[in-house]
Design a protein around this nucleic acid. Structure first.
Lengths: 206, 206
DNA sequence: TGGCAATACAAGTAATTACTCATATTATTA
DNA sequence: TAATAATATGAGTAATTACTTGTATTGCCA
């Protein structure tokens, strides 16, 4: 069962040179994924690009899946941290103020490396994803949203908080993701973030 | 270049028995994809499930990609037709009436075979997708939406029609898709479709 | 009924690729 | 400085799988 195969590093780097090796491997993974897309990416190519032998790669990553998982982890952690700091800043700001700021932040995140973001979220087969880890980050963001919505509950129209969380989360994510990839011209001015903010605010606020 | 490889059937079935073969192959493709997911699907398995030799399969489908493309084509055609008939019925109904009907229809479509829908839209590598064909169906739906929005233009708040089309399309698709897969309990009553309709109506209508 | 075209068959091939292992090199420590 | 641990190497292996090809069977038509 591939789902049983561990994804944890086989060996933790202890000396400086191996930490450099691991870094190079992850950088190469991101680079090859971005350049070639998932299905033209293979471990030999990654090792080559990293300037490292294939054997070294398998010393630190037990299988191909673990490379992807490590990269995703890095990536989602960055996103979660940025959103956390935004929510902390905006916790006491009403939706009319907070929503546009959050939408702006999400668009900015997606615009950093759209192609890598696309590959990680669209092209990686489900079987290559570590369910627990993904859900952890997702739950973290859900929790931030939940706290914020409860804080402003009496200003909000929808009453089913869990459903509202899902709707907001899903809508913002998919709109920002697709816009960056399919309509980059939308992103150039602030019109798009205003529209998305309008969509959410007019739904949320009484 | 895999993108150059034709995807058109190598041979068109002429007798009844071969038409049955082709049907069985497509049914088997859908079945295996649904059961095993994309990356555990292979052509030998499809042929076996279809009760047909691997040679017969390659007589009608020049490569694996063409199987997926044929299946997607069938699938998107069904969706486009259903939406077209809905839009025709509702062309002269105001958004407050039309939107809930359309949302309901989209949810219903996604609920028919959620797993197949998920595999086709999430798991199939981008390289296995025929770009032209996908965009044709997508453009067809865009066109229906455009005509409707123009018809009711003076009742609408957003002025940038192209951006509005994108926002509506993307929002409805992703909400219905994700809800069916991640929150089937939302679908059981009509609360979810009401909420999604509210989201859109409060944004669209002055 | 015989000949031809359409269809069906499945063993086999060739290419890809994740991953191993025996060995060599470099750093650390006692 | 010698011994040991950590790290690096890359040729080779084994498994998978898309696809070919030569042959057999079935249906159609004159």
């Amino acid at each position: 069962m591939s789902s049983k195969r561990s994804v944890k590093p086989r060996k933790l780097p202890q000396q400086e040179r191996s930490r450099i090796t691991v870094e190079a491997i992850l950088e190469a993974t991101a680079h090859i994924l971005t350049e070639k897309g998932y299905d033209k990416t293979n471990t030999n190519l990654i090792a080559q690009r990293a300037g490292v032998s294939i054997g070294s790669l398998y010393q630190y990553f037990p299988n191909k899946k673990s490379l992807i998982v490590a990269l995703r982890e890095q990536h989602s952690q960055e996103i979660a941290e940025l959103l956390e700091s935004k929510f902390n800043h905006l916790f006491n700001s009403p939706p009319e103020i907070a929503i546009p700021e959050l939408v702006k932040a999400v668009i900015a995140i997606h615009a950093i490396n759209p192609r890598l973001h696309q590959v990680l979220s669209e092209e990686i087969p489900r079987s290559e994803r570590s369910q627990q880890q993904m859900q952890k980050t997702d739950e973290q963001i859900t929790e931030l949203l939940r706290a914020y919505l409860l804080r402003w509950r009496d200003r909000l129209r929808p009453q089913n908080i869990e459903m509202t969380i899902f709707i907001i989360n899903c809508t913002v994510e998919s709109l920002c993701h697709s816009a960056v990839i399919e309509h980059p011209q939308f992103i150039r001015d602030s019109k798009f973030e205003q529209e998305v903010s309008n969509l959410l605010i007019s739904y949320l606020v009484r």
